[in-house]
Design a protein around this nucleic acid. Structure first.
Ligand code: SF4
Ligand code: SF4
Lengths: 132, 132
DNA sequence: GACAAATGATATTAATTTAGTATCATAAAG
DNA sequence: CTTTATGATACTAAATTAATATCATTTGTC
């Protein structure tokens, strides 16, 4: 999978927050809307807060708002946060890098594909994803 | 990962067999060359045999040969065998298909990328991968 | 200031997938 | 008929992913 579950959930949550008229959205509202298990969603939102994608406020009427405009939040940012650096091909098995790496034709092909994938992903913003 | 370990091992083994001057290659030779754990490699070769990518012969001097020319063995065939149908995005969590599938912007983007990846992969043959 | 309602931080458990091993059966060469 | 090779299958272990549970902290309201 290119996009894992956490990233996917993060996108859904951020889209909803982006589309919301209200300036704050609580976990409760998101759970109701997105049908994501609450403890799970909380964890994701907390990470997004720590990574400066969201701003949170505590206490009654607390909740989350986007920390920056939707066109400044990139899908690749989220993937980085929840999946680490995107690699279609790590060439590591049994904790050892493959000795063929330098000459491997397969690696060359995959690397080329990876480049294209990354360049496509780089263009995707939350703004695009949250358009109605 | 786009290519999993089994597919990767299969590619390495098939490349070696394709490059070998001898018309038969035994597991022992492959193990020595490729440093893949023997029981593992055996399993992979057995699957390749069953899937008609290799032909095996038993007994002393037994071993494996390609079942067809290198340009007829496609990387996508191997991926299909060892990884199932290629999907960058299954849109299934908790065993349920995502209800957003029809309208989801993210899915549309990923599907487009997937198309490109698949079309690139389709062009890759064992012949290309085993060129010296 | 006490209390309730929200998020912050972290630890734990469960399920699933991936990785690796072991065993016995079968076929062929000599 | 013995040895050497692959065929088939069952099993165990490790790692990853998924999900939950618990307690701490902040803040608005009465
Ligand atoms: S064989 Fe090639 S693709 Fe596979 S791990 Fe080694 S370098 Fe990477
Ligand atoms: S939100 Fe979109 S990308 Fe994610 S699972 Fe649903 S349809 Fe697929």
């Amino acid at each position: 999978m290119l996009i894992n579950r956490d990233t996917d959930y993060a996108v859904r949550a951020l889209c909803f927050i982006a589309q919301s008229k209200k300036n704050k959205v609580s976990v409760g509202e998101l759970v109701k809307e997105l049908k994501i298990p609450r403890p799970f969603l909380r964890k994701i939102l907390q990470i997004l807060n720590k990574k400066k994608m969201l701003k949170s406020s505590k206490g009654p009427h607390g909740g989350f708002i986007l920390a920056k405009p939707g066109n400044k939040i990139l899908l690749t940012d989220l993937m980085k946060i929840f999946q680490g650096v995107l690699k279609l091909n790590k060439c590591i098995f049994k904790k050892q890098v493959c000795p063929n790496m330098k000459t491997c034709k397969l690696k060359k092909k995959i690397d080329k594909i990876e480049k294209h994938v990354i360049s496509e992903l780089k263009g995707i913003t939350l703004e695009q994803l949250s358009e109605k």
